[in-house]
Amino acid sequence: MRKVKEPIKNPLIWVGLIVIILLTVPWYLPASATRPVILGFPLWAALSGFFTIVLSAFLTWVLSAQWDIEEPLSDSKASSRGGDTR
């Protein structure tokens, strides 16, 4: 049987997401972390930008590889269980 994958059910995804989010905010850097300037960005902003790229890559991976619920041909199931919600 096909395995259903739902991102919210995988705690590792959320640990990863929280760690990356915390790394995009420069709370952990000393006030001196302004130099060197990388591609026009002070060090702390360059790090924030770098971890934002990591965040995008991570989310892209989760979206494509960790989310698999709908069966390719689910229309018959959908219509048999359909109904108004009122």
């Binding site: 989010i21 965040l55 359909g82």
Partner: peptide
């Protein structure tokens, strides 16, 4: 630079509910 991060993160927000809600929305119209 946070404006880039938060716009990316909106996709993380979707992950909290979109996978299941999409299935239920189809099932119950």
């Amino acid at each position: 630079i946070r404006s880039v991060t938060f716009m990316v993160l909106v996709m993380g927000g979707y992950l909290l509910f979109a996978p299941r809600l999409y299935v239920l929305a189809k099932r119950y119209n």
